[in-house]
Design a protein around this nucleic acid. Structure first.
Length: 193
DNA sequence: ATGCAGATCGTCT
DNA sequence: GACGATCTGCATC
């Protein structure tokens, strides 16, 4: 079942935690690709020095200020794209970074897009999964309640644990917040803890 | 297994 | 003009 708009209209921490174990899917003429979300991070707007929306609305972050359930894509280090899900109601600038997937659908197509054959390294990081799913800058603002990219329920069961977020050391006290959520012990995580 | 440098550019100060 | 919510290949242990 595809997640409805209401799923995304809740606070970012709840959305981040509950996205673990759901399946994210993209659909293109060349095929469908997807995987179980096993790692997320919440970015909590004005409360969070690590968040892109911490310093207010800009051309890049304007999507944070709309309603939840839309895609925020950005370029990092000049070469990788990161895929995020906007959370909460309009005016509350929160988002969830998707950091790792357990590949399930269209694995051959994802391997081709990545130029890699190792399943464990196919979607074990935010740049990797964005490439594997075929996400481009054109996905900025895409509606997760549409057909080209969406998230659906699964029967995946996992113990969820919370840790500090990855690579946000610049954010002072916020770097310590336990706002990364992982399927405990899963082999496809970007970092093994 | 662990570590480090290089690639590369949009965004914000 | 500086710097990332990163990934890869190559070096060394």
């Amino acid at each position: 079942m595809k997640l409805p708009r209401e799923f995304y209209l809740r606070d970012g921490l709840t959305v981040a935690r509950e996205l673990v174990g759901k399946k994210i899917v993209t659909r293109f003429p060349e095929g469908m690709t997807g995987g179980i979300i096993v790692e997320t991070e919440a970015y909590m707007g004005a409360l969070d020095a690590a968040a892109h929306s911490y310093r207010g609305k800009t051309e890049r972050t304007k999507i944070f200020y709309g309603a939840g359930g839309f895609v925020y894509v950005y370029l990092i280090y000049g070469m990788h794209l990161c895929t995020n899900v906007v959370a909460n109601v309009a005016g509350v600038p929160e988002a969830v970074l998707i950091r790792a997937l357990e590949p399930t659908d269209g694995v051959e197509l994802m391997k081709r897009r990545r130029g890699k054959n190792n399943l464990r390294e196919l979607c074990s990081g935010p740049g990797k999964l964005s490439q594997a799913l075929g996400v481009t800058k054109n996905f900025y603002g895409a509606d997760l309640c549409g057909e080209e990219i969406f998230i659906e329920t699964t029967d995946f069961q996992a113990t969820i644990s919370a840790t500090r977020r990855i690579n946000v050391d610049y954010a002072g006290a916020a770097a310590e917040y336990p706002w990364r959520f992982v399927a405990a012990g899963n082999v496809f995580l970007s970092v093994k803890h």
